[in-house]
């Protein structure tokens, strides 16, 4: 565990909690893509099946359980408790266009052709694109609440910090995982445009809105 990995995990945790609190405090999930949140719940579920088969550390187990619990709580708030505020008309990204190709790729390109390994690979690939429905929704409505942009920024930082973590691990532990690294690069690249808007607009105190 290096400092970049820990900072990445905490940034990820912050993102998840910011989103939960935003929905809870405002009693509304307006502007949030329920599809992205379902995809993230699917990502955690398929990746953390090793909770049952493989113990790594108390930190690892606790964080996995928190991520899983928060992911399902978010989906519950969006689709059950605050369903009336869910902006389904703007959440029109076709999630099956992500899940099906990613599932096919996980079958073809993996470290080992076993159920758990394929599901782990699927979760890595899916995570890299799971934010697309949310970004699509923002591009469609042309704006995002500031708190939503903080959520996205923390989520993007998590990925960027993981990239630095992998560079660190490559140099100091001679350790790398090509599947995770390639997917992580793709995921980070998807955030670049958003990072630019966040820095030039939100951090200057302006609301994030896109030109019509």
């Amino acid at each position: 565990m290096n400092i970049f990995r820990l900072a990445g995990d905490l940034s990820h945790l912050a993102a998840i909690i910011v989103l939960l609190l935003k929905i809870w405090k405002t009693r509304s999930c307006a502007g949030i893509s329920g599809k992205s949140q379902i995809l993230f719940a699917l990502v955690f579920t398929t990746r953390y099946l090793d909770l049952f088969t493989n113990f790594i550390s108390p930190y690892n187990t606790v964080m996995k359980m928190i991520y899983l619990g928060c992911a399902y709580a978010t989906v519950y708030l969006i689709y059950m408790k605050f369903k009336a505020t869910y902006d389904g008309n703007h959440d029109t990204f076709r999630a099956e266009f992500l899940v099906v190709p990613v599932g096919g790729l996980a079958f073809l390109v993996n470290h080992e052709f076993s159920p758990l390994e394929i599901l782990w690979t699927f979760s890595i690939y899916l995570e890299s694109v799971a934010i697309l429905p949310q970004l699509f929704m923002i591009s469609k409505t042309g704006e995002a609440e500031t708190i939503t942009t903080h959520y996205l920024f923390a989520l993007g930082m998590y990925r960027a910090l993981y990239l630095i973590n992998w560079i660190w691990r490559y140099y100091f532990e001679n350790f790398f995982d090509l599947i995770a690294i390639v997917a992580g690069c793709v995921q980070t690249i998807l955030y670049c445009d958003f990072f630019y808007l966040y820095i030039t607009k939100v951090l200057q105190g302006k609301k994030l809105s896109l030109p019509a």
Partner: peptide, 10 residues
Amino acid sequence: EQESAGKDEL
């Protein structure tokens, strides 16, 4: 045997 990095990462 090459273990996947993701196994100890989140």
